[in-house]
């Protein structure tokens, strides 16, 4: 009866990437394979991905490709972050200079007025 419920449930949970990779590399038991396939049935993203991944000639290479892509992603994220930090620093320095000039102007004006008022 419980198994019957699964046909209609439509409640899909995500399959983690590690399990998908094991599935592709044939490292799962028949029962585990069925569980993955059942979850994929309700996840278009994962299902499409699995279809594509099965077309890779060397399934063992997929891990290295993913690792290289993640490394590239890290570079992209850091580059953007560095550029943002640089911009932030630039804006901050400009702000400090403007404040300093403003303070100097006030001090100078005070000094001039003070001199003029002296007998």
């Amino acid at each position: 009866m419980d198994n019957l419920k699964n046909i209609l449930s439509g409640l899909s949970t995500d399959v983690d990437q590690e399990t998908l990779l094991q599935y592709l590399q044939g490292k799962l038991t028949d029962e585990q394979r069925q569980a993955v396939e059942e979850k994929l049935m309700d996840n278009s993203f994962e299902e499409d991905a699995m279809e594509g991944l099965q077309e890779f000639k060397d399934k063992q290479q997929i891990s290295y490709v993913v690792e290289a892509l993640n490394r590239d992603l890290k570079r992209k994220v850091e580059k953007k972050k560095k550029r943002r930090d640089k911009m932030k620093l630039k804006v901050q320095s400009t702000l400090y200079i403007v404040i300093l000039i403003f303070i100097l102007l006030i001090v100078f004006s005070y000094w001039i007025i003070h001199k003029m008022l002296q007998p």
Partner: peptide, 24 residues
């Protein structure tokens, strides 16, 4: 707006993205 957060989310999907791109 710190891209580090995006890096963390995106690498959860690297394998799936690779598969979808390969499919098409």
């Amino acid at each position: 707006h710190d891209n580090t957060w995006l890096g963390i989310i995106l690498q959860r999907y690297t394998l799936l993205l690779l598969g979808v791109c390969m499919k098409y």
